[in-house]
Computed example of a mutant assay.
Amino acid sequence: MKRNPLRHGVWVTSSRSQQVACVQVRASETSVDIRDSKQRFGDVLNVSPGAWTAFVRTFG
C-alpha cells in the first residue's frame, strides 16, 4: 500500500505534474482542495475525500 502524501492543511505538488502543468492538493477532514500552482491566489476546486480517493484509484 502506498503512503498517503497529503498532510492536513499543507499544499503538496502532484508527483505527476509537469513544469507547465503543476497541480497542488491539500487535505482537510471534510475536503480535498485542488489548485494550479502557478495561480496560487486563484480559484480552488474542493472535492470530498471520497471523490478524491475514487479519482486517485481511477487515474493514479
Rank of each mutant, 00 (worst) to 15 (best):
E29A: 05
V20Y: 00
P5V: 11
T58G: 12
S17A: 13
G50C: 06
V25Q: 01
G9I: 05
V12R: 12
Q39K: 03
D36V: 04
P49E: 00
M1Y: 11
V23H: 05
W52P: 00
E29I: 03
K2A: 02
R35D: 00
L6N: 04
T53K: 00
F41K: 09
T58Q: 15
M1R: 08
V32R: 03
S28L: 11
Q19P: 06
V10F: 03
T53N: 11
R35L: 09
N46L: 04
Q19V: 04
N46E: 05
V44T: 03
N46K: 07
Q39W: 09
S31K: 01
T53R: 04
S15D: 08
D33Y: 08
D33V: 01
T13S: 02
N46P: 02
S37Q: 03
R26I: 03
G50T: 14
S17G: 06
V32P: 04
V23E: 03
P5Q: 02
Q18L: 10
V12N: 13
H8D: 04
Q24I: 02
L45W: 11
G50F: 02
Q24G: 07
T58L: 15
R40P: 08
R40V: 10
S31W: 01
W52N: 00
E29Q: 02
R7C: 08
G60N: 10
A54H: 12
V10K: 12
S31M: 02
F41A: 08
V23R: 03
